[in-house]
């Protein structure tokens, strides 16, 4: 008898649980539940900062909270892979890194931009050739001249073989006909620390990542690898101005799995655009030295397609070295 009672209790608990879980049903309106924004890197980096700064005003503009979720691992592959697998209902989005344009060719990502619904571009940051403040070079020309005289002597740090900052260094090598030793680090911060400790000579990470050091006078930027100068360092010339055609930008965009309905893409686009226009967002992001670069859905598609083409020769040169 006792056993039967126990069994009944267990069964009742079970059924009630089933109903409790099934109760949350969806309605027609979008969005009605929180939006998950996957950051495929660990908390604390530039991508994470952008996502969190956006999410601050998420509820105001979309009516539902935007929840940032960090999914680091496999240089972004894990979080992006999860995004692809998610339902294409617009409730799971991710910050898409520039690396989607070229890591598939290197066999690291099993996917590229074509596996995502691209919504909009959020930010662009140029690579910046940065050295320690007391380094003997003051211009890109001096740096290149030294590199020409001492091939393979200058060590340039970046944040991972095959990642964008490596391509930036390789692009400099290709365009100035110089040789460097590339030293991969586990993220930009470690590479910067290594320059500070004089273990390597330069880094080609983004201008935003070195901005704290540069402002404090610990490091100096020799050239910005962007189309135009950075807002926080208006005195630092671009590589183009100094006669070297090196342009390498990272960009971070918003996207989700393939197949998000167009009307939802529109709602998300408008919502996130409004978040980007919040004065607080602009102030925060600018303070970090990160560049805000809104591009519409159509332009974002163009940008992602063009980048792959633009980086092809650099990638070719790297693969040849291998």
């Amino acid at each position: 008898m006792k056993r039967i009672i126990v069994l009944l209790v267990v069964l009742m608990t079970l059924t009630s649980l089933v109903f409790a879980q099934g109760a949350a049903e969806t309605a027609e309106k979008f969005p009605t539940q929180p939006i998950k924004l996957i950051v495929p890197w660990s908390a604390g980096g530039g991508t994470d900062a952008i996502a969190r700064a956006l999410a601050k005003s998420g509820e105001k503009h979309l009516g539902v909270p935007v929840i940032v979720e960090n999914k680091p691992g496999g240089t972004g592959a894990l979080g992006l892979g999860e995004t692809i697998k998610a339902a294409a209902d617009g409730y799971t989005l991710a910050i898409l890194p520039v690396e989607l344009s070229f890591l598939k060719d290197q066999g690291i990502y099993p996917f590229d931009f074509s596996n995502f619904t691209r919504i909009m571009n959020l930010n662009t940051d140029p690579s910046a050739l940065t050295v320690k403040a007391d380094a003997p070079w003051n211009t890109l020309a001096e740096f290149v001249a030294y590199a020409k005289a001492n091939p393979g002597k200058i060590k340039i740090g970046h944040s991972g073989t095959g990642m964008l900052w490596h391509l930036a260094a390789a692009s400099l090598s290709l365009n100035s006909n110089t040789q460097y030793v590339y030293v991969p680090f586990n993220g930009a911060a470690d590479a910067i620390a290594s320059v500070l400790g004089k273990n390597i000579d330069a880094v080609t990470v983004s201008g935003a990542e070195v901005s704290a050091q540069v402002r404090a006078g610990e490091m100096k930027i020799l050239a910005v690898f962007g189309e135009r100068r950075m807002d926080i360092f208006p005195n630092v010339p671009t590589a183009k101005e100094q006669g070297f055609d090196v342009v390498v930008n990272t960009f971070r965009g918003l996207g989700g799995p393939v197949g998000i309905p167009e009307d939802r893409v529109k709602i998300l686009h408008d919502g996130f655009k409004a978040m980007m226009e919040e004065p607080e967002f602009i102030e925060l992001i600018s303070k970090m030295g990160l560049g805000i670069d809104y591009r519409s859905t159509a332009d974002y598609y163009k940008l992602t397609d063009a980048t792959a083409a633009a980086l092809a020769p650099v990638l070719q040169s790297l693969l040849k070295i291998k």
Binding site: S42, A212, Q213, A216, K287
Partner: peptide, 21 residues
């Protein structure tokens, strides 16, 4: 280390730029 990386990110979102300055 890892946890301080997250705090660092938090600092930046709070509008503080960690560093020598």
């Amino acid at each position: 280390e890892a946890a301080t990386a997250v705090i660092l990110g938090g600092l930046m979102v709070l509008g503080l730029q960690p560093g020598p300055l």
